Simulated assay, not measured.
Amino acid sequence: MLDDSVEKIKSLIAKEGNFIEKIEEYIQIRTWYYGKYTLRFFFEAVESDPELRQYLENFNAASKNLLMTFIEEGKDSGVFSPDASNDAIEIYIDMIQTYLMHNKEIRDRLEHNPELAREINMLFLDGLIRNMEE
């Protein structure tokens, strides 16, 4: 499931098209499994299995790299503001990943409410959108 989402995001980044439309598609890819799969077992296994924990760390690193590539595309297209430094964005992403990794209650809430997961992703990406009145 996680590997599939990485492949879909890679395809989205490579795809030509309107970046605003790509934002919506990105959010759909990032949230499609909420409400479909139970992630509790996976995260419980991660806590006790070093190999699975390493897999998740590798996935998170790859996911963050793809997100940064997506954000750079958004900056290049003029949709995302160049004012947010990549360092600040990476720290923010790390904070969210760490928070989700260690907060079972929030993971459960997101798992049972795909719309909430979508809103959180929108809040993050909306925060990067350039003030078009400039």
Rank of each mutant, 00 (worst) to 15 (best):
N58M: 09
P114V: 02
I29P: 04
L12R: 04
D108S: 06
D49N: 14
N65C: 09
K104A: 12
E51Y: 11
R118Y: 14
N18H: 09
G17S: 08
L110I: 05
I106V: 15
E73T: 06
A62G: 06
I89R: 00
L128C: 09
R118E: 13
L2F: 13
A117I: 07
A61Q: 14
Y55S: 03
G74R: 01
N18T: 09
R30S: 12
I91F: 07
Q54E: 15
L12K: 01
G127V: 11
L66Y: 06
D3F: 07
S85V: 14
R107E: 05
D126G: 02
E44G: 00
L2A: 01
H102W: 12
H112A: 04
N58F: 05
G74N: 07
P114Y: 00
I27G: 04
I120H: 01
L2D: 03
E25W: 02
L100Q: 06
R30M: 11
A117E: 05
I93K: 01
N18A: 05
P82K: 01
R109L: 15
F19W: 08
A45G: 12
M101L: 12
I23P: 02
V46F: 02
E51F: 11
T31H: 03
G35A: 04
D3E: 14
G17N: 09
N113I: 10
A62Y: 04
K64Y: 05
Y26D: 01
N121T: 06
G17F: 10
V6P: 00
G78W: 11
T38P: 05
I71R: 01
A61G: 08
G74V: 04
L52S: 05
W32M: 01
L2W: 11
N113W: 10
E21N: 12
A62K: 14
K64M: 13
E105F: 13
I129W: 10
E57I: 04
W32P: 02
E111M: 07
N18Y: 08
P50Y: 06
R107K: 11
S85R: 04
R109D: 15
I120K: 03
M95K: 11
E25K: 05
E44R: 06
T38I: 07
L100A: 04
G74H: 00
R53V: 02
N131W: 07
F43R: 03
M122S: 06
I91C: 01
F124H: 04
I129F: 09
L56N: 11
T38K: 05
S63V: 02
I27W: 05
A14E: 15
H112R: 08
M101T: 14
F70A: 03
V46W: 02
A88G: 07
V79K: 09
N65H: 12
D87C: 02
I29R: 01
E7D: 13
G127P: 05
G17R: 03
R53W: 09
L110K: 01
H102N: 14
E105C: 02
N103T: 15
I29V: 13
L39E: 03
D94Q: 10
D83L: 06
K75D: 00
G78C: 06
I120T: 05
I120Y: 03
T38D: 14
I106S: 09
A84V: 15
L12F: 10
I71H: 05
R53D: 15
E47S: 10
G78V: 10
